[in-house]
Design a protein around this nucleic acid. Structure first.
Length: 677
DNA sequence: CTACCTCGAGCTCA
DNA sequence: CTCGAGGTAG
């Protein structure tokens, strides 16, 4: 075949194959036998082999999976991928509706909702530029995910090129990648036949398949993609109703859920939920709830967002699955703060897609409330990502040998007495650092990634080090020698050297990390950062008084009290000194730096009703940029943010010639300083 | 909390 | 081959 003729034939074949592919994988409506599709594909492959210059990256032959990656690259979502608020029953849904109507000032409206099942898979983002699939990414934390382009390209229901026309220049499609039940069963059957370990549920199978560095493996997995919204849109317009946008996506060759529907009013949402719940078991895929979205985009915009979720959407979850099992034993774990937590050891039971063998019983009150005994038959509940729970006891099935759970009066680890503070539910071991469980927890926390980040120092190793008596205090970590380490189990020279090296590297840190690493009660990462920022140096922190602490962001009387207690306790200051002697060091923060925050020195006031933010949120964001947010307008006020309904403050601001901006200007100002809402 | 992937390194046995 | 650590996801 001549090249010109080959090019023509290849073009024709691609179009034909894309069409068949679309009908098969997107519409679920095959029009030709598999053999015919395969024949076409082979012919195209043959042409492309003969004329490699004719290969098009979007060709249907290019779905077999590319060569393995060394690692996934990070990608930033320009429009964050938010999560959804949850509803668990009809009452939550009514409350959702009331919130909507109130915010929109439409007390009696029957809003239109777009509804569809919430597939149990992995959320992804697909970026199309000029209709060509450019990038696929995981959700990650909503802002930063991983580039899984190579893997998504192998999924047949994801078009490599959009069909038709009229799509925006840049279109980010969001949806769920999942594994249909039949594919999951088939794959697991094959895995078992080959003596490999099957996946426990379709969701994990989909997640595992997408995490492959070798896309050729992903290509063999029966994955599907279903689109449910759009993110970034540039150079084009989309319709003004969610349901219409979905229709566009379908026209452009993306798969959308066949069950999607539009209903009017919250009661119709309930009916939709009930009908789908009844058919749930018969669906070809797993779902864990139903999503309801306000259909009109202008209303969505007016409703805005709360922290990490839109106000205009909600996921109504199905009731958590429950299973009956036996309580084998209760262990009492001692946490970093000495808190004693009872943990139920259960006869392993498959519930909600995973095998549950542990569940927290929280505290003594919870045990009393349940009236549970060891040996009892209990009901365990698990819903999706929530922690398994012991819900109730089947008392009538209590065996003769059941024994009461005796809450310890002494620490199970060190034997010190346990105490409970007035009004608190948790009992704590008073042993402090005498208690090896607390020491272990303290060291694990110190070494953890967000604290001092000692790579390679995991739970098991810490247990060993403490049990062998090699480390009795934090600073003891830095005294470890090669000889000591090599003597440990599963520790060769290489591992030992790596650990010593990691410890050495951890010594250079920041004040914020160090404060966090100390494990002061109630002082988490954020508070530690605020303290570091406010005081700049360890000395300044130490010299500060309780009232100085109270002046720091997010520090209330409780945290301030814990700080004072920490510094008053005898061993702590000596321990910090020992750590610094061992070489732990950080740069002091120029406290002038704190004043370098963009709005430092300015005083703002927020009044009236805001839409995208609550007043408290606006206040917090402004404070984050260094502004002082006052309650009333004075001559010293730099700027007034006035929403609708602003009254005397607005009048006074005008009188005093204070700058007044509205909410959109505020959002813009925040965005200018890198704060997106 | 559970499950999964990946990697480095130690252990085991030929 | 197995283990532990580190990371991701829901």
């Amino acid at each position: 075949m001549e090249q010109r003729e080959a090019a023509e034939r290849a073009g024709h074949l691609r179009q034909q194959l894309d069409q068949w592919n679309y009908q098969y994988y997107v519409l679920d409506d095959p029009t030709v036998p598999d053999a015919e599709y395969d024949r076409g594909l082979q012919e195209l492959q043959a042409i492309e082999a003969q004329y490699p210059e004719l290969i098009d990256p979007q060709s249907p032959t290019q779905r077999v999976g590319a060569a393995p990656l060394a690692q996934f690259q990070q990608v930033t979502h320009q429009v964050p991928m938010l999560s959804l608020d949850n509803a668990f029953d009809a009452r939550d849904m009514q409350a959702f509706n009331r919130r909507l109507l109130e915010r929109l000032s439409l007390p009696d409206a029957q809003l239109e909702f777009a509804c569809e099942p919430k597939l149990d898979g992995i959320a992804v983002s697909l970026l199309y530029r000029h209709g060509v699939l450019e990038r696929g990414a995981t959700r990650g934390d909503g802002t930063t995910g991983e580039d899984i382009t190579q893997n998504v390209r192998t999924i047949r229901s994801i078009p490599l090129r959009l069909r038709g026309s009229g799509f925006p220049d840049v279109l980010e499609v969001r949806g769920e990648i999942y594994m249909p039940r039949d594919g999951f069963e088939r794959m697991n059957r094959q895995a078992r036949e080959r003596g490999e370990k099957p996946f426990v549920n379709p969701r994990n199978a989909a997640a595992g398949s997408l995490r492959q560095l070798d896309a050729r493996i992903t290509a063999t997995r029966p994955l599907q993609m279903c689109s449910y919204s759009v993110g970034l849109v540039e150079g084009g317009r989309l319709p003004d109703r969610h349901s219409e946008i979905l229709r566009c996506l379908a026209q452009w060759g993306l798969r959308i859920n066949a069950e999607s529907a539009v209903v009017t009013g919250i009661d119709a949402c309930d009916a939709y939920y009930q009908s789908l719940a009844a058919r749930r078991a018969g669906l070809p895929y797993d779902i864990d709830g139903i999503v309801f979205k306000v259909n009109a985009l202008d209303l969505q915009q007016r409703l805005g967002f709360v922290s990490r979720a839109p106000r205009w959407a909600i996921a109504r979850k199905f009731p958590a699955q429950e299973e009956v099992t036996r309580l084998l034993d209760v262990e009492f774990q001692v946490g970093r703060t000495g808190a004693i937590t009872p943990v139920a050891r259960l006869e392993p039971v498959f519930v909600g897609g995973v095998t549950v063998s542990n569940a927290t019983l929280h505290n003594a009150d919870e045990i009393a409330r349940l009236g549970v005994q060891i040996g009892d038959t209990v009901v365990v509940r698990r819903a999706g990502d929530v922690i398994p729970q012991v819900v109730s006891v089947l008392v009538e099935r209590r065996p003769a040998g059941a024994t009461a759970i005796v809450f310890p009066t002494r620490c199970p680890d060190c034997g010190s007495p346990v105490e409970r503070e007035e009004g608190e539910a948790v009992w704590r071991c008073v042993g402090g650092l005498v208690c090896s469980a607390q020491r272990k927890a303290a060291i694990k926390h110190y070494a953890s990634r967000r604290a001092m980040d000692v790579e390679g120092l995991g739970d098991k190793l810490v247990d060993q080090l403490v049990d062998e008596g090699l480390v009795t205090r934090l600073s003891g970590l830095y005294d470890l020698t090669l000889t000591q380490l090599v003597a440990l189990e599963r520790m060769g020279e290489k591992s030992a050297l790596n650990l010593i090296d990691a410890l050495e590297r951890s010594k250079t840190t920041t004040l914020a990390r160090f404060i966090f690493a100390l494990g002061i009660r109630e002082v988490g990462e954020t508070t530690a950062r605020n303290l570091a920022q406010a005081f700049g140096s360890w000395e300044a922190l130490l010299a500060a008084s309780e009232s100085d602490y109270l002046a720091v962001q997010d520090v209330g009387p409780v945290v301030a009290d814990h700080l004072v207690q920490f510094f008053d306790a005898p061993g702590n200051l000596e321990e910090v000194a020992a750590l610094r002697r061992a070489g732990v060091t950080w740069p002091d923060i120029d406290t002038a730096n704190a004043n370098a925050l963009p709005l430092a020195g300015q005083t703002w006031v927020v009044t009236g009703k805001l839409e995208a933010l609550s007043r408290d949120e606006a206040k917090a964001l402004l404070q984050g940029l260094g502004a002082k947010v006052a309650g009333s307008v004075s001559a010293k006020t730099d700027c007034l943010v006035a929403g609708p309904g602003a009254g005397s403050k607005l009048v006074r601001a005008r009188a005093l010639d204070v700058t007044v901006i509205d909410e959109s200007a505020l959002l813009e100002a925040l965005a200018q300083h890198g704060v997106t809402v």
